[in-house]
Simulated assay, not measured.
Amino acid sequence: MGPWIVTRDEIPDVKALTGRAKINGQVFVEADFSDALHSFPDMITFVSRDETLYAGEVFGSDTVGNGCGLERFEFFADGDVFELEIDALGVLRNKVVRQDG
Rank of each mutant, 00 (worst) to 15 (best):
M1V: 11
G2M: 12
W4Q: 14
W4V: 15
I5N: 07
T7N: 12
E10H: 09
I11P: 03
I11S: 06
P12H: 07
P12M: 07
P12A: 12
D13E: 10
D13K: 05
D13I: 06
V14G: 01
V14D: 04
A16N: 06
L17K: 00
L17Q: 02
L17C: 06
T18S: 08
G19T: 04
A21N: 02
G25A: 02
G25M: 02
G25Q: 00
G25T: 01
Q26W: 01
Q26L: 07
V27W: 00
F28S: 01
V29M: 02
V29S: 01
E30K: 06
D35M: 06
A36I: 08
A36D: 03
L37D: 07
H38K: 12
S39P: 02
F40W: 03
P41E: 06
D42K: 13
D42F: 11
I44Q: 04
T45S: 14
F46E: 10
F46D: 09
F46W: 10
D50C: 11
E51P: 00
T52E: 06
T52R: 02
L53P: 00
L53C: 01
Y54G: 02
Y54M: 06
A55K: 01
G56W: 00
G56Q: 00
G56D: 00
G60E: 07
S61Y: 08
D62R: 08
D62L: 10
D62H: 08
T63N: 11
T63W: 04
G65V: 09
G65R: 10
N66P: 04
N66W: 11
C68H: 12
G69Y: 11
E71R: 14
E71W: 11
R72Y: 04
R72M: 09
R72A: 07
F73M: 14
E74A: 15
E74S: 15
E74M: 14
E74Y: 10
F75M: 07
F75C: 08
F76W: 13
F76R: 11
A77E: 15
A77F: 08
D78T: 08
D78P: 09
V81P: 10
V81F: 06
F82P: 03
F82N: 05
E83A: 08
E83P: 06
L84E: 04
L84I: 14
E85W: 03
E85F: 02
R93K: 13
N94E: 09
N94C: 13
K95D: 05
V97P: 01
R98F: 11
R98Y: 10
R98G: 11
D100L: 11
G101S: 13
